[in-house]
């Protein structure tokens, strides 16, 4: 008994140590640096803890920490707008994805069973394909002299090219496109294993196909929808590549603000404060996701 408990502990130890060191501890450091101020040095922030200073070193270190960066974030409309528009983009895209994903997953689940493995593979392939490249592909389609405008002009549907690239619409298209597999796979996993006799029973009792879908299929698929929504919403809140490549210079999202504070302004403490704000926004959904993760992940992997 004790031997096997020792073994259990040994199995857990490497992932515990690794993930604590490289996932948990970094957050603590980010929090600390968000309370520091920028400096032109390496590392580019103050104060730096002097380990040899003992207790006195600690107290001067702690006294030097302040909430200046958070005051900057709260006081500047740019950051407030970025936070709100991150939530708005992620929320809108998740809502669209819920509709599109449900339709596609339901169609897959209703397709002849011999086709289903192929259909699932077709949805999985883009998930394995480079995110950057899939977003890049849309530039050639959406730009003013791009393929979409060329097609619409030739069909005579529009008199002049539409401005789609570098707008909020382009960002939404990119978000929905890039995250569609994350919504479809958990939904399909649940929908494909619903007991068909439940639908038949509802139909026998006189419900039309629409009513059967809304009152039987959809409520029973709620777990898949929830998992899919979390898988999309959480990373979308901090999305950088999509707003950067498809959005205009006025498209503000926290991921992009964080990136430019870090890379362009070299203000590491302010970038850290933005990271903490972003983390606060997504921590609730992440806790929900943890509960779903094992179930949903297992469903999706089936």
């Amino acid at each position: 008994m004790t031997r096997s408990r020792l073994l259990d502990a040994l199995v857990r130890l490497p992932p515990w140590l690794w993930l604590s060191a490289f996932f948990l501890v970094p957050f603590a450091i980010t929090l600390k640096i968000s309370l520091s101020e920028a400096a032109t040095a390496m590392p580019p922030y103050l104060p730096v803890l002097d380990w040899k200073g003992g207790l006195e070193g600690w107290s001067t270190f702690l006294e030097a920490l302040h909430f200046q960066n958070y005051e900057t974030l709260a006081g500047d409309a740019l950051y407030r707008d970025a936070a709100l528009s991150s939530l708005a983009f992620a929320g809108t895209a998740t809502a669209i994805l819920a509709g599109v994903g449900t339709a596609l997953a339901y169609a897959m689940a209703r397709a002849p069973s011999r086709w289903q493995p192929l259909l699932v593979a077709l949805v999985v392939v883009p998930f394995w394909t480079s995110f950057l490249i899939r977003v890049y592909a849309w530039i050639a389609i959406l730009k003013p002299e791009g393929l979409l405008n060329a097609a619409l002009l030739r069909l005579g549907l529009i008199p002049a090219p539409l401005e789609i690239l570098n707008t909020q619409g382009a960002v939404l298209i990119g978000l929905v496109y890039a995250y569609l597999p994350f919504m479809v796979l958990p939904l399909y996993a649940v929908m494909s294993r619903l007991d068909p006799t439940l639908r038949e029973a509802a139909a026998d009792l006189g419900a039309g196909p629409t009513r059967v879908f809304w009152t039987v299929t959809l409520p029973l698929s709620a777990a898949g929808l929830r998992a899919g929504a979390l898988l999309c919403f959480i990373p979308m809140c901090g999305e950088f590549i999509i707003p950067d490549l498809l959005g205009g210079s006025d498209t503000l999202m926290l991921g992009r603000v964080l990136w430019s504070e870090f890379f362009s302004n070299r203000d590491w403490p302010l970038a850290s404060a933005v990271a903490v704000v972003l983390l606060v926004l997504v921590v609730g959904p992440i806790v929900l996701f943890r509960g779903d993760a094992r179930k949903a992940g297992a469903e999706a992997a089936r």
């Binding site: 857990r12 992932p15 515990w16 993930l19 604590s20 060191a21 490289f22 996932f23 948990l24 501890v25 970094p26 957050f27 450091i29 980010t30 640096i33 590392p43 979390l230 898988l231 959480i234 990373p235 809140c237 901090g238 999305e239 950088f240 926290l254 991921g255 964080l258 990136w259 870090f262 590491w268 970038a271 850290s272 990271a275 972003l278 983390l279 997504v282 992440i286 806790v287 996701f289 943890r290 993760a293 094992r294 992940g297």
Partner: peptide, 27 residues
């Protein structure tokens, strides 16, 4: 906590993971 540590990195916005790891490495 263990479950969270294993699964959270999959959904954590990449800018957070990237920045916090960098700060650890510099630290």
């Amino acid at each position: 906590l263990f479950t969270g540590l294993v699964y959270a990195p999959m959904v954590m916005p990449e800018v957070i993971t990237g920045l916090s790891l960098l700060l650890l490495f510099v630290g």
